[in-house]
Amino acid sequence: MTDLRADLTGKRALVTGGGAGIGAAIALALADAGAEVVITGRRERPLKETAARSSRIAWRVMDVTDEAAVTESFVATAPIDIMVANAGVAETQPVAKTTLEFWRHVQATNVEGVMLCVREALKPMVERGWGRVIIVSSVAGLRGLRYGSAYCASKHAVLGLMKCAAEEVLKTGVTVNAICPGYVATGIVERNVENIVARTGMSEENALAALRDANPFGRMIEADEVAAAALWLCGPGSGAVTAQAIPVSGGQV
């Protein structure tokens, strides 16, 4: 029987937004499986803190909205076998109050930044005959959320990007998939709670409960649970899985 445990010894991974939350959890999981991991982000401090947790993790400051910086980073860290496009912003506004400036701000990171990283990752992977591209989307990419038009649109957009990229690299040994988490116990949820309190006057406890209850199984998702899905997509037995949006959402669809 095939050993289905992921052994990523000899593989090199790049994880954007890897300093905290889901990105940090994925980076640590990949490193624990033997991969050499480079994490990127805009803030040096969380990158250093996460890298200090594993001898297999290095860090690099990179803003995914800066095309030249993205290209330079992929050249400097090559070869990349696994690319996790996790960097994103989770800012919301009602449609009626959404300015074009706000809309473009969200799309710049959540869509254009993902596109740049996918673009830079794919060609070298195809040339080597193996690669894993994982986009961290959201259940917001599968449904609509009140006050979340810019965010939901961005997360829907990267699922379209994922499906197109996957089609383009069929039969090359490269897979492209997305993970769609529900509400995960990270700093982003903490900021969501603050926004709900400010917008509605709801207590912090009730705001957190509302987000928790949006996950049908009645608890917050842990970042390690999202990381486990990413690790599986990199391991043996996952080669037939491509062009898929995989919810990790406690039953939320």
Rank of each mutant, 00 (worst) to 15 (best):
C180T: 12
A121C: 06
G160K: 10
F102H: 14
T172Y: 14
S137L: 04
W130S: 13
A185I: 08
L142N: 10
G113N: 02
F102C: 06
A85E: 02
S137W: 05
G113I: 01
Q107P: 06
T175Y: 11
G88L: 03
E127I: 03
P181V: 06
P94R: 07
L170W: 12
C164W: 07
E91M: 13
P124N: 12
H156V: 02
V126C: 09
A96C: 06
V176K: 14
T109N: 01
A178Q: 03
G131E: 05
Y151P: 06
H156F: 15
G148W: 02
A87I: 10
M125W: 02
Q93W: 00
W130G: 07
M125T: 04
V174W: 12
L116C: 00
G173H: 12
T172F: 11
A153L: 03
K97D: 15
G144I: 09
R132E: 09
L161E: 05
G131R: 07
E120H: 12
A87D: 11
R143H: 08
R146W: 10
M125F: 07
G129S: 11
V114Y: 07
A150Q: 03
L159P: 07
V174P: 14
G160L: 06
L170A: 15
C117H: 00
E120N: 13
M115T: 11
R104V: 05
A165C: 14
G88I: 02
Y147H: 13
H156A: 02
V84Q: 07
C152F: 00
S149L: 01
V158A: 11
T98L: 14
R146S: 14
A96Y: 06
A157T: 08
A150D: 03
E91C: 09
V111R: 01
C117Y: 00
H105V: 00
C180W: 08
E168K: 14
R143T: 12
V139Y: 06
A121E: 03
C164R: 10
L100M: 14
E112Q: 11
P124H: 09
K163D: 04
E127R: 15
I134T: 08
V118Q: 09
V89C: 04
E120Y: 01
E167R: 15
Y147E: 13
N110R: 04
K163T: 03
K97G: 14
V114K: 09
T109M: 04
R119S: 12
G148F: 01
G141S: 06
